[in-house]
Lab assay of single mutants.
Amino acid sequence: IDVRFTVNGLDVTVRVRTEEIAERVKELAKNGVDWREIQRIAEELNK
């Protein structure tokens, strides 16, 4: 599942395995978490 969001004007796409992880990623993006941090968290959750 590809999750797309915009952080500080940057369009970011993170690929995740499940809808649940996708929701977590969207939540982080909404809360203004840095995209590199979101990427790292997504990689952890995908394991």
Rank of each mutant, 00 (worst) to 15 (best):
N46S: 07
T13C: 07
V3I: 12
N46R: 02
E27S: 11
G9E: 10
E27Y: 04
W35P: 12
I38P: 00
R36F: 14
T13R: 05
W35C: 05
V25W: 00
E43C: 12
A22Y: 04
I41W: 07
D11I: 15
K47W: 09
K26I: 15
R17D: 08
T18A: 03
T6E: 14
D34C: 07
T18D: 09
R4Q: 14
T18R: 02
L28V: 03
Q39A: 12
I41R: 05
D34F: 05
V3N: 01
A42E: 01
W35I: 15
D34Y: 05
A22V: 06
E37Y: 04
E43W: 02
D2T: 08
K47I: 14
G32I: 07
I41F: 10
N31A: 15
A42W: 03
R4V: 15
E44R: 08
R36T: 15
V25R: 00
F5D: 03
K47D: 14
R4P: 04
V7R: 04
R40A: 13
V3M: 06
K30Y: 09
R36W: 13
V12D: 01
T18L: 02
I21K: 01
N8A: 09
R15N: 15
E27A: 12
L45N: 03
T13M: 08
R15C: 10
E43A: 11
G9K: 01
I41S: 03
I1L: 09
G9N: 06
D2H: 07
Q39D: 05
L10K: 12
D34W: 03
I1R: 06
V25I: 13
R24P: 00
V33W: 07
I21S: 04
R4L: 08
L45K: 02
F5S: 05
R17Y: 10
G9I: 01
V25A: 02
E20G: 11
E23Y: 05
E19G: 10
L45F: 07
Q39N: 09
T13Y: 04
W35K: 04
G32C: 02
V25Q: 00
R4K: 15
E27N: 11
K47M: 14
R4D: 14
G32W: 03
N8E: 12
Q39M: 15
R24K: 14
Q39T: 14
V16C: 09
G9T: 03
V7Y: 07
Q39Y: 09
K47G: 11
R40S: 12
N46I: 02
E20M: 10
V7K: 07
